[in-house]
């Protein structure tokens, strides 16, 4: 690891990112522009999250990286290895043992605690972007708290589908002020954004924005009185660990239409199986995982 500065980035860059993170913490939900750097991975692979993680890491940290809840997918494995090589930090798959967790599109099922930092990889940080493509206009809309358009979008969902069909990247209003894109997490995870004891940081590399939720901050999912927000998930229990309240992935198992539902959070599922929970298609854990 001595071939790199600690955590890859140079000190000048880390200072710039750190200043942006602090302003983001001071203005919850506001997108702070920052001078995003080229990283040794393509845009869309978490360059924003990686830069935020690099600016936060200390040698004593224990890093967990998840991609859609899984610790063992390509994106998670490559980012975890990147920081093992460039920062020499310890890594873990256990949510409770991690001090910094970089995530792509999930919040772990295990509740986070004080002292942990959750870093989100964000593709499009602007919740209004698909409604208004001009940055000059969306900036003005945030300035004036003019969020009518996003309610129109949710209303059109109801008019077309009979319910709010937005199921991920579901917008939240932070501390009654800024409407924020929580990154493409399933709306099932939205309630965990609010009043979380951990620090939540959001990094969008290509779009050059950093934003944050300090601990114990309010984040209200937008809805209507007659169509309240529902944190939905597949109406099944996990087929491996029988968890009924965790977010599930649907997996097609053959070409006859068979399918199974499994926890998207691999660490959560694994630890439940190790504790003896057995789902419909599971078998008792043997410890050879």
């Amino acid at each position: 690891m001595n071939d790199y500065n600690f955590a890859y980035l140079d000190e000048q860059t880390k200072r710039m990112i750190r200043r942006a993170i602090l302003k983001g913490i001071a203005i919850p939900g506001y997108q702070v522009p920052f001078a995003s750097r080229e990283m040794p991975m393509p845009y869309g692979w978490g360059t924003g999250g990686v830069q935020v993680t690099a600016a936060c890491l200390v040698p004593e940290d224990r890093l967990k990286v998840i991609d859609q809840g899984a610790d063992d997918t390509t994106n998670a494995v490559s980012i975890r290895r990147f920081f093992q090589r460039t920062a020499g930090v310890a890594v873990t798959e256990a949510t409770a043992e991690a001090t910094v967790i970089q995530t792509r599109h999930r919040i772990p099922e295990t509740p986070l605690s004080e002292g942990q930092i959750l870093v989100y990889q964000v593709p499009i940080p602007e919740p209004l972007r698909f409604l208004e493509p001009r940055e000059t206009e969306t900036r003005k809309m945030h300035e004036l708290e003019e969020y009518g358009l996003i309610h129109v979008k949710l209303y059109e969902d109801i008019a077309r589908h009979g319910q709010i069909a937005t199921s991920y990247a579901y917008p939240v209003k932070v501390e009654g002020r800024y409407v924020m894109d929580p990154s493409p997490i399933p709306k099932f995870d939205n309630p965990k954004l609010a009043d979380n004891p951990a620090i939540q940081l959001f990094g969008a590399g290509r779009e050059q924005r950093i934003y944050a939720l300090p601990p114990h901050t309010s984040a209200v999912s937008l809805d209507f009185e007659d169509h309240p927000f529902v944190a939905s998930k597949a109406d099944h229990a996990c087929d491996l660990c029988a968890a009924e309240a965790s977010y599930l992935d649907e997996v097609i198992t053959d070409d006859q239409g068979s399918r199974m539902f499994v926890c998207s959070d691999t660490d959560f599922c694994q630890s439940r199986r190790a504790a003896g929970h057995v789902g419909r298609l599971g078998h008792p854990a043997t410890g050879d995982q």
């Binding site: 600016a55 936060c56 200390v58 620090i199």
Partner: peptide, 18 residues
């Protein structure tokens, strides 16, 4: 610098966040 500023930033971050 890289290690000491990293530790200092974590304290500054926690302080501003709490």
């Amino acid at each position: 610098a890289s290690i000491q500023s990293a530790r200092a930033f974590r304290a500054a971050l926690e302080a501003m966040a709490r």
